[in-house]
C-alpha cells in the first residue's frame, strides 16, 4: 500500500507539469485535473479514431509490459489502488466465475480498437465515453465545478453513468471489479505475464500442498498450478504462504527454471 501511495505522487501531478505528450503505464484519465501523463488506453483509442498508428503508446506498453507484466496493476496503478482502498471496507465479498477474466479482452478489442477505428470517438461505446476512471477523476469533478460556478452542467452519456454506478456498487462487494472484468490495460499487460522479466516462480519442492496460497489469492487463481496466470495482478499475496513455495523472480535469477504451466 505504501508503494501504491508513493506512486500517487507521480501520477497526481503535484508540480502541475501536465506532461500530456507522454503516456503513463497506468489507468489514469488525462482529463483529470490531477494527471501528470496521458492515459495509454485513451491515446490508443483516440489515435484509432484518427486512423493514426500510436507508435509511442504501443511501444511504451510493450516495453513496460515485457519488463513488469501485471506488477504494474498490483503495485503502481492508481485506479487499482482506489479499488483496493474501497475493498478494505468490511462488506461481504463475492467471487467471480473464471470466464469473466476474459471479458477484458472483449473490452479491449471492441471499445479500444474496433469502435474507435470504425465509428470514431463520438460513438457511445468509445472507451473514454464509458470509462469509470474518467467519470470519477474527470467528469464528476468537472460537473461539481460547473455546479459551483453556476454554469450549465454537462452530463456524461447514459452508458457512462450506468457503468459508473455499477462500478461504485461493485467495488464494495467484489475485489477490484474493474481490473478483473473490464480493464483493457490490464488485459494488455497480462499477455506479457508469461514472458516478462519479473515472474512468479513456483518451487514444487517447497510446496507442502497446504493450499494456503488459494486462500491468500483474492482473485480465484490457484497459484501453484498457474503462477503466471492471465488473471493475476501480481499483488504477491500468495508469496506469503508458509513454506515460501512461490517467489517473485527475474529471468536473470541464477536458479532453476521457472515453472510456467
Amino acid at each position: 500500500m505504501w508503494i501504491q501511495t508513493a506512486f500517487l505522487i507521480v501520477w497526481l501531478d503535484p508540480l502541475g507539469l501536465r506532461m500530456h505528450s507522454m503516456c503513463s503505464p497506468v489507468f489514469h484519465c488525462y482529463a483529470c485535473p490531477l494527471s501528470t501523463f496521458a492515459c495509454p488506453i485513451g491515446v490508443i483509442a483516440q489515435f484509432g479514431a484518427l486512423h493514426i498508428f500510436p507508435f509511442v503508446a504501443v511501444g511504451f506498453l510493450i516495453t513496460i509490459g515485457v519488463l513488469f507484466g501485471t506488477l504494474i496493476c498490483g503495485w503502481v496503478c492508481p485506479f487499482g489502488f482506489l479499488q483496493d482502498l474501497a475493498g478494505k471496507i468490511p462488506t461481504p465479498k463475492f467471487d467471480l466465475p473464471k470466464f469473466t477474466g476474459y471479458f477484458r479482452y472483449v473490452i479491449l478489442i471492441i471499445t479500444v480498437l474496433a469502435v474507435p477505428y470504425f465509428f470514431g470517438e463520438e460513438h457511445p461505446l468509445f472507451v473514454c465515453r464509458i470509462c469509470p476512471a474518467g467519470a470519477i477523476e474527470s467528469a464528476v469533478p468537472a460537473m461539481v465545478g460547473q455546479a459551483i460556478a453556476g454554469e450549465k452542467i454537462l452530463w456524461p452519456n447514459a452508458i457512462k453513468l450506468i457503468v459508473l454506478v455499477l462500478f461504485l456498487i461493485a467495488v464494495f462487494f467484489i475485489k477490484r471489479p474493474w481490473c478483473r472484468i473490464l480493464c483493457p490495460l490490464g488485459a494488455i499487460f497480462s499477455l506479457f505475464n508469461r514472458v516478462s522479466v519479473f515472474f512468479l516462480k513456483f518451487n514444487p519442492e517447497k510446496c507442502t500442498d497446504c493450499k494456503r496460497c488459494h486462500k491468500l489469492c483474492e482473485y480465484g487463481i490457484q497459484p501453484e498450478k498457474s503462477p503466471n496466470d492471465l488473471r493475476c495482478i501480481r499483488c504477491l499475496e500468495c508469496t506469503n504462504c508458509g513454506p515460501k513455495a512461490l517467489k517473485l523472480e527475474t529471468i536473470f535469477s541464477r536458479s532453476k527454471q521457472p515453472t510456467n504451466k
Binding site: 498508428f53 500510436p54 507508435f55 509511442v56 503508446a57 504501443v58 511501444g59 511504451f60 506498453l61 510493450i62 516495453t63 513496460i64 509490459g65 515485457v66 519488463l67 506479457f192 508469461r194 514472458v195 516478462s196 522479466v197 529471468i251 536473470f252 527454471q257 521457472p258 510456467n260
Partner: peptide
C-alpha cells in the same frame, strides 16, 4: 519455457518496444 529462450524473447520485445517508441517520439508526424 527455458530461461535462455525467455531472455531472447524478452530482449526482442524490448527492442521492438524501444524501436516503436523511438520512432513515434522522434520521427512520426
Amino acid at each position: 519455457m527455458k530461461n535462455q529462450v525467455k531472455i531472447i524473447v524478452v530482449s526482442l520485445f524490448i527492442l521492438l518496444g524501444a524501436a516503436l517508441l523511438s520512432y513515434g517520439a522522434l520521427f512520426h508526424s
